[in-house]
Design a protein around this nucleic acid. Structure first.
Lengths: 187, 187
DNA sequence: TCCTATATGTACCGATCTGTACATATATAA
DNA sequence: TTATATATGTACAGATCGGTACATATAGGA
């Protein structure tokens, strides 16, 4: 029961869940794809739900890490960073295997508001909103909560539209909208 | 095989799919909830996929009907109607049993871009974007396609956020953002 | 009344679902 | 070597999945 073995299972499961969905991915498929035995799988994770939650935790951590780091790489001031988020999103949209936001999908498959998976998906969104609210505050705008909320709305919309409309122009339109909203908020 | 019987089945199936999701809803459950026999169900719909597609068609029609009609009820000019869409969304969010956008969820559960269900979900979004583009053009803005795209992004974002953040303030923030974007687009 | 066509109810198919029992392999310690 | 603990592979349980076979009920026309 090496700890890194468990991490490896979570990483692989995350890939499959992201690609194929949660209900559509059975434990048998995961056992085959990871090459581990079913017994070992259930030694590491008591239930499928536990495995999903572990995968979502990893995704939350790595996605926010990537996004926030990428934003800081390309922009210096808080105001610029708010806008740079849309460039990062665009990069993400253009990646091979882009399939939209894992947490929107998790919330869609587990709709009950107090289901642990739904709760965790909501928490991811809350953390992102919190971060952008901080950026907006540091940018010195009038109503940081409102601007951050609007920026996040544009981001979510861009993600959903990128999936369903199958192009990346939503990222461009969203970025321009965010720039205008920021300018107004800066007075 | 009365035609209205079929419609009734679609209506009921739509409710259950919307409430519980697609993969999570089995034909057995639908048979119980509709009170019809399994044989009859499969007389009307060759496969579960056919039933889902029929349900999505009904949803597309009734949702767009409701939204566009509601918008016209409360606003006269195209510009006002663009903004009024957010008031309509807010009403929707406050309904009992609101569970987000059926087509975002369909796209999330059937991710393959050429899967018929995914295609139909994308078509719904395309039709809405088309309508708002028409409104933006009639409002006489510079770049109707861009403004419509941005309005739709805010709408999608508001829907997703309303689901995951569990409050209706996204509708308010989105509306204000749309008003500012409209004002800018009107020059 | 009898014949035929259609609608229905029920039992079932093979596949797959999550999860477990159990026997075996492997490693460590005495 | 032998005893013990842990990791693994496999087979399977019980439920449910989408879908069908088939027998029965019901209707309308001759």
């Amino acid at each position: 029961m090496r700890p890194n073995k468990r991490d490896e299972l979570v990483r692989k499961a995350l890939q499959v869940f992201y690609r194929d969905g949660f209900h559509a991915t059975g434990m048998d498929k995961l056992v085959v794809e990871t090459g581990v035995s079913k017994t070992s799988m259930y030694k590491h994770f008591r239930t499928k739900e536990d495995l999903i939650l572990a995968a979502l935790r990893l995704r939350d951590e790595s996605f926010r890490n990537w996004l926030l780091r990428r934003i800081e790489e390309v922009a210096d001031t808080p105001a610029e960073q708010l806008i740079a988020s849309f460039d990062a999103l665009r990069e993400w949209f253009e990646e091979d295997g882009f399939r939209g936001c894992m947490f929107i999908k998790a919330g869609a498959e587990y709709q009950d508001a107090d289901h642990p998976i739904h709760v965790q998906a909501a928490e991811h969104k809350r953390l992102l909103l919190e971060h952008f609210t901080r950026l907006a505050r540091d940018a010195g705008v009038d109503d940081p909560a409102k601007l951050a909320s609007q920026i996040v709305l544009l981001q979510e919309g861009a993600i959903v539209s990128a999936v369903l409309l199958k192009n990346t122009s939503p990222a461009k339109d969203a970025k321009e909208a965010a720039q205008q909203l920021l300018k107004i908020a800066q007075g």
